[in-house]
Write a protein that binds this DNA or RNA. Sequence first.
DNA 1: TTGACATATAAGCGATGCCTTATCTAAAGT
DNA 2: ACTTTAGATAAGGCATCGCTTATATGTCAA
Lengths: 105, 105
Amino acid sequence: MNTTPAFRALGDPTRRAILDLLAEEERPVGALVDRFAMSQPALSQHLRVLRDAGLVTPRKDGRRRLYRVQGAPLEGVHDWVGRYERFWSARLDALGAYLDDERSR
Amino acid sequence: MNTTPAFRALGDPTRRAILDLLAEEERPVGALVDRFAMSQPALSQHLRVLRDAGLVTPRKDGRRRLYRVQGAPLEGVHDWVGRYERFWSARLDALGAYLDDERSR
DNA sequence: TTGACATATAAGCGATGCCTTATCTAAAGT
DNA sequence: ACTTTAGATAAGGCATCGCTTATATGTCAA
């Protein structure tokens, strides 16, 4: 699985905020437009990036498109970041320091 | 904690690869230059982005700078993504489908 | 102290990103 | 049929990105 489009999509704070809103519930584009200080096309473009990254999917409902989160690509992101857990866990940081110390002996 | 610089830094695949190398062990810039098909300044610039995001720190060693991972900002990233776990977990996806079904009844 | 080495910074360039306004398509309401 | 509504796409502007080559800074070695 290629996580690059997902990582790139998450690089923009507006897109993360969109995901946060869609995580609460499925929403039409208009509901998102109401929440951001930018034009409707700008939102549609962000949604396209998210769609292309597989992070959201639209569902037709009359003339509206209801977007929902499609989380699968986030698992790869989560896993990648998770491999760094020892770099922020205090206990394992201590272990890291110990190993560094050992190595320099 | 502001996770935006970290998310943005991780958006580039070269920088993720740099982190992967530094996660194995502390390395000088030259060791990274050897691993990528790009110039030394390009690497130094990627390292600057990672440094500014708090993801790596250099340590002086003679005329070299040894870079190491500084994982703290990744915890915020991991937490943010972790909130989406239900969107990729099969069991909870089934629950989600069930709830959607209930709602539309 | 002179020269080689390791890295950072500067300047510039083409590609990409994020926004805008204008327009197109499709579905509803009248 | 015409108009309105919801959304996507097109085109263009300006900033930022990711690279390059050239140069500056600091350290080691002869």
